[in-house]
Design a protein around this nucleic acid. Structure first.
Lengths: 115, 115
DNA sequence: TATCGTTATGACTTTTATGCATAGCGCTTC
DNA sequence: GAAGCGCTATGCATAAAAGTCATAACGATA
């Protein structure tokens, strides 16, 4: 994840909470991006190596806690159905990525300076 | 932990790993500081609201994985015994605090800028 | 109307975290 | 010198969280 120095390495985790409950983080970021790419929760889950069940739980929690509809779903139909991101979801991911990417760099830099 | 904006807030976690196993983080930082303050693992654990059992497990894991003796213990004797930090532990904590404090500020600042 | 690849969800299993109970130690006090 | 005190030490049981598995329902398509 990060640079190392003398076999020890720094790790950082960043996430957003709402009412004390986690609603967004690195894993969910990748999940939403993958859904956007494949148009399917199922395919997206495979891509990032989590079970469909877990992906589904993530989405459920995110939407409930954030109060925003993130995924548009279609059950049955052509190709069995599918899923796509709402504009709100895209905007949210965009902001989170800005936030996270900058911080990650900063953490590494600082760690290497101090250790 | 961090500032909030519209009932959502950013959270960050920072820790150090050795061989892929966590060895130090925010909780352990507080624990070591409390041990330094009270001269007792037991009192320290009470101070930061964890069980003695947990504190003891933390210390064991830290010392094993880091390969550094962090706590000097005395079993029995005056006041039943006690514990104190080794110089190596103090130095480690000092560095970690420098690292963490700077990052925390940066994370908050950036979050408030973007969200 | 049978098939296909989805979404949806309950139930079970495994792993991890937490807490409880108890033992052993050595100074201190009587 | 025996009992008490507050500490370290650790096995074991319990609880909570995470992960896995199985199965149902759906609707365009052929």
């Amino acid at each position: 994840m990060h640079k190392s120095h003398n076999d020890i390495e720094i790790k950082s985790k960043l996430w957003i909470e709402s009412d004390g409950e986690p609603v967004f983080g690195r894993g969910r970021r990748f999940l939403l991006n993958a859904i956007d790419k494949y148009g399917s929760i199922n395919q997206a889950a495979k891509e990032i190596n989590i079970s469909y069940r877990k992906a589904w739980s993530y989405i459920k929690a995110m939407e409930e806690r954030l109060g925003i509809k993130l995924i548009e779903r279609q059950i049955g139909g052509k190709n069995g159905g599918g899923a796509s991101l709402t504009p709100e979801a895209r905007e949210f991911v965009r902001r989170y990525e800005m936030l996270e990417d900058g911080i990650r760099e900063y953490v590494d830099e600082r760690f290497n300076k101090i250790f």
